[in-house]
């Protein structure tokens, strides 16, 4: 046997997604909070270019990621951008003060985790880390119902994003870190789904999404109002804490 797993032995296609339309529906929920579709697509393109292009360009710089390949640096910067978004979302939601009870506790703890993920990824990337984009959460941090729906989509998306990148990571150290974060995102997704009376584990196999798919989906939300401005002169991180 040369290949234990191949297209023939897989009982499902890893690209087979969204049988019940749950993701499409969730994305629609997010889109309701955004203003204009043309605007999102333009922003998505900007964001994707900024993240991928920036990461690749900065990959040549020396960084604590050390032997990390350009590809790994791009993946880490992509993950960092998603974590910036999640962290900012929960931080802002906490500040707005409209959440209470278990939902407030969820936002507080998950916010801590996302900020820890940001810190770890920035540390790994060192000077190659992209800066945070600026965000506009379109009211989803100011209303408990909008918050819980948005959190569910963000966390489910995070799971698919990490699953999509894991097989593309070259360095075992980077992979180990990504896996350690991946399952925590899945725990968050399960937790908020439970709070939302949605199935915490809606299927036996989670889906994955490519970088392009995730960035397009994030772009459609309109949450990213300004793509990360990567420095051309040395990539010194704009924020250190």
């Amino acid at each position: 046997m040369t290949n234990v797993i191949n297209e023939e032995t897989l009982p499902f296609s890893l690209d087979e997604v969204d049988k019940d339309g749950a993701i499409a529906e969730a994305m629609d929920t997010l889109e309701r909070f955004a203003d204009s579709r043309a605007g999102f697509l333009r922003k998505a393109a900007l964001a994707a270019g900024g993240v991928v292009g920036g990461g690749a360009a900065l990959g040549a710089l020396a960084s604590p990621a050390g032997a990390a390949t350009k590809g790994d640096v791009a993946i880490l910067n992509y993950a960092l951008t998603l974590e910036y978004l999640e962290a900012a979302f929960y931080t802002e939601a906490g500040r707005m003060g409209v959440l209470s009870g278990p939902l407030a506790q969820f936002a507080r703890i998950v916010g801590q985790h996302e900020r820890a993920h940001v810190a770890a990824l920035k540390k790994a990337l060192g000077s190659a880390a992209v800066a945070s984009p600026t965000f506009d959460f379109k009211g989803t941090t100011e209303d408990a119902t909008a918050f819980r729906q948005t959190a569910q989509v963000l966390e489910d998306t995070g799971v698919m994003a990490y699953a999509g990148q894991a097989p593309r990571i070259a360095s075992n150290a980077v992979l180990g870190a990504a896996l350690a974060i991946h399952t925590v995102e899945a725990r968050h997704a399960s937790w908020i789904r439970h709070l939302n009376d949605a199935p915490p584990a809606p299927r036996a196999f989670d889906q994955s999404k490519s970088m392009e798919q995730v960035l397009a989906a994030v772009g459609r939300t309109g949450f990213i109002t300004r793509a990360p401005q990567t420095s051309t002169s040395g990539g010194r991180p704009r924020f250190t804490g």
Partner: peptide
């Protein structure tokens, strides 16, 4: 990767049922 996150969802779910933190650590 498509299985492990489902295991993590199970873990968080049963933890929430028994009032343990569903996600006890950031990593």
């Amino acid at each position: 990767a498509s299985i492990v996150s489902v295991e993590a969802r199970h873990a968080a779910w049963i933890r929430d049922i028994v009032r343990k933190s569903p996600a006890p650590a950031a990593f």
